[in-house]
């Protein structure tokens, strides 16, 4: 992109961050009372809302039930006003369907589904405002919602994106950096065991640089983990105080 310097000579990005710096992550668990678990997460200007229902009996056709584990059912949608230009449909388009599949794959890897055979867990995420890193914000919000619902998981799932601009790996890309069209890696990590739940890469990147970028992404995921863990601890502390324990 001409005229726009994504990384200044001094090492600052368009929004003033350093290369490995995350955007401000703020989150809250237990936003809604009716759902089994819910969470709201802001990652910079990207805002995501996740709701979890379940584990409950299979809804609709029982033929989809798995005899040895729970079915993880996801839906990704974006509010029609979330993007710069208005979207016509909140979900059901190709991009959302792909995201739905990715979420499903991520959470099947993390949730201990074998504990709930023949049942179903619903995870619904909604992007309220999009400013890059939508998938990552969704995963992080859904992790908090799943914890809020009390569903056992192997580990937190933390997701973060990373890009590669001017020979420097950048963590947690915003919309402007995403739109520049450089290589982009989205990584969902189980931070304690360093297991990868989902990995996706767009565009071209030289093999030699891949390790650096992966390194940056997993470092960012671990930073996200620290924030999420703090949110969960604060929430639990608040709830137990309210209960008077």
């Amino acid at each position: 992109m001409a005229g726009l310097e994504l990384l200044s000579d001094e090492g600052y990005r368009v929004d003033g961050r350093r290369a490995g710096e995350l955007r401000k992550v703020r989150a809250r668990m237990g936003v809604f009372a009716q759902a089994d678990g819910s969470a709201y997460l802001e990652q910079g200007n990207t805002k995501a809302l996740a709701v979890v229902y379940g584990p409950h009996e299979m809804r609709g056709s029982r033929s989809k039930a798995l005899h040895d584990r729970a079915l993880v059912n996801c839906q990704y949608s974006m509010a029609t006003f979330s993007t710069g230009e208005r979207k016509r449909r909140p979900h059901g388009d190709r991009k959302s369907s792909e995201m739905t599949l990715h979420l499903k794959q991520t959470f099947e890897a993390a949730i201990l589904t074998q504990l709930y055979p023949r049942s179903q867990i619903d995870i619904y995420v909604q992007i309220l405002q999009a400013d890059g890193g939508n998938y990552c914000a969704c995963v992080n919000a859904a992790t908090l919602a799943t914890i809020d619902a009390g569903i056992p998981m192997r580990d937190y799932v933390c997701a973060c994106s990373a890009g590669f601009i001017e020979d420097t790996p950048l963590a947690d890309l915003n919309y402007v950096e995403e739109a520049a069209g450089g290589p982009q890696v989205a990584l969902a990590l189980l931070p304690k065991s360093d297991q990868i739940a989902l990995l996706e890469m767009n565009s071209r990147l030289h093999e030699d640089h891949l390790e650096q970028v992966m390194e940056a992404a997993s470092k960012a995921c671990k930073d996200v983990y620290a924030v999420l863990d703090q949110v969960v601890r604060d929430h639990v502390h608040e709830v137990t105080t309210l209960l008077g324990e």
Binding site: A35, L49, V51, N73, A79, T80, G92, Y124, Q126
Partner: peptide, 16 residues
């Protein structure tokens, strides 16, 4: 006007 009954409200609203 456009109204989106999102699945967040209740699982019955999933899909269409």
């Amino acid at each position: 006007f456009f109204v989106d009954c999102s699945a967040n409200a209740t699982p019955e609203f999933e899909g269409r």
